[in-house]
Design a binder for these strands. Structure first.
Lengths: 192, 192
DNA sequence: TTCTCTACTAGACACTGTCAAGTATGAATA
DNA sequence: TATTCATACTTGACAGTGTCTAGTAGAGAA
C-alpha cells in the first residue's frame, strides 16, 4: 500500500503537485494533501523540499528545463516555430507553466538552478533574434524584438490557459490554426 | 479610532485588499487581515462580500470597469494607443490587474456584473479591429487579429508585472519606449 | 411597544504551514 | 562486533486561516 518508499517520495510528491496545479491551480497545492496522496506523514515532504516554496522551485526548475529543451529543439525551424513551441509547451505542461510564471510562489532568483534553466530558454530566443537581425544590429533593437516575440507567445499562452477571455476566441475553428497564425504574424514582424 | 463605520467598511476592505494585491499578490489577502486593518471583527467583511471569492469578484468588476474605460477612451487614437492603454492600465493598477487575470481566485462567469465590464473592454478592441479590416472582412480573420492584439498587450503587461524574465529586458533604456515600440509593431501587423 | 432589517461581534470548527523532538534503518568506522 | 552517524521518515504541538452558527446593538416601520 505504501509505495512512497519503493519509488522516490520526492518524485511522487512532485507529480502530485504538478497534477493539482494543472487541474485546480498551484494555490490549492497543500503540503499535507500531497503527503496524504503519497501515503506518508504530513512532515515527510519537508525532508525533500524544505518548505512549500521548495516544491514550487522544483517544479519551476523542471518546467524551465523542459521549456528550454523544446525551444532549443525548434531553433532550426525558425522564429515562428519557436513561438509555437512556447505556446504548445504551456498547453502541454499546464501544471508546470502555471507555477513557473508565478514568482510570488517562489522567487526565481532564490533558486539559481531554476534560474539557469530559465536563462537557457531566454537565450535561445534572444540568439535567434540576433541571427535574423544580423551581427551589426543594435543591442536595444534586439532586446525590443525579443521582448516583442516573448510577449506574443507568453500572452497567447496565458490567455489560452487561464484567460478570462479565452471563450471569446472559441469561435476560431481550430486552436492550432490560431496558434500558427499568431506565430507567423509575430515572426514576420521582425524581418519587416 | 474606528473609522469603519464612518466611511463604508466595504470600500475600506476593498482598498486594503487591492493594496495588498499590488504589494504582495492576491494570495496574501486574508479575510482576517483586512478586517484587522479596518479595525473590525474578523466576521465583519463577510457581511459585504459573502466569502473570500466575493472580495476578488468585487476587485475584478472594478478593475474591468477601469480597464474598459481606459480602452474605450483610447479608441479614437487608434490600435497602437489601445494596446498601450492596456499595458499602462496593468502597470498603474497592479493590484486590480493581478486579481482580474486570476480566474482561479473567482471564476468570472459566476459574477455576471464583472463579466459585463470584461465584455466592454473586449468589444472595444474587437470593434476597432473590424473597423480597420473593413466591413467585408471574415469573422475568423477579425477573431485572429483580435486574439493577436490581445496577446501582445497581455503578454507584455504580465511580463512587465510579474514575469521572471523582466529583469532581462532591463537594459532597454526607457520602459515607456519599449511599450510604444511593441504597440506600434503590433498595430502595424494588422494593416500589412 | 413590538417587529424586522442592517451591520456588525463572539465563539467554535476543521484545516493549513511549520517548528521541535523522536524513531527506525542502513552504512561506515572503531 | 559494537558504536557512531546520516537518511528518511513519524508524532505532536502551535499559531494562523476561512467559514459556519449564534448572538447583539440600533434604527426605522407597524
Amino acid at each position: 500500500m505504501n509505495s512512497a518508499k519503493t519509488d522516490g517520495l520526492r518524485r511522487q510528491v512532485l507529480d502530485a503537485a504538478v497534477a493539482i496545479a494543472a487541474s485546480s491551480g498551484p494555490d490549492v497545492i497543500s503540503m499535507r494533501e500531497v503527503a496524504r496522496l503519497a501515503g506518508v506523514s504530513h512532515q515527510a515532504p519537508y525532508h525533500h523540499f524544505g518548505d512549500r516554496a521548495g516544491i514550487f522551485a522544483a517544479i519551476s526548475e523542471e518546467g524551465f528545463r523542459l521549456l528550454a529543451d523544446a525551444i532549443e529543439a525548434s531553433t532550426t525551424l525558425g522564429m515562428a516555430a519557436m513561438c509555437e513551441a512556447y505556446v504548445h509547451f504551456a498547453l502541454a505542461h499546464k501544471g508546470h507553466f502555471r507555477v513557473m510564471m508565478r514568482n510570488d510562489l517562489c522567487s526565481l532568483e532564490d533558486y539559481p538552478s531554476a534560474l539557469i534553466q530559465a536563462d537557457r530558454a531566454f537565450n535561445a530566443l534572444r540568439n535567434e533574434v540576433t541571427v535574423i537581425l544580423g551581427e551589426d544590429s543594435h543591442e536595444d533593437e534586439a532586446n525590443a524584438h525579443t521582448a516583442y516575440m516573448w510577449s506574443v507567445a507568453h500572452g497567447l499562452a496565458t490567455l489560452l490557459l487561464d484567460g478570462p477571455l479565452l471563450k471569446k476566441l472559441g469561435s476560431v475553428a481550430d486552436i492550432n490554426a490560431l496558434i500558427r497564425n499568431v506565430a507567423r504574424k509575430a515572426s514576420s514582424s521582425i524581418t519587416v
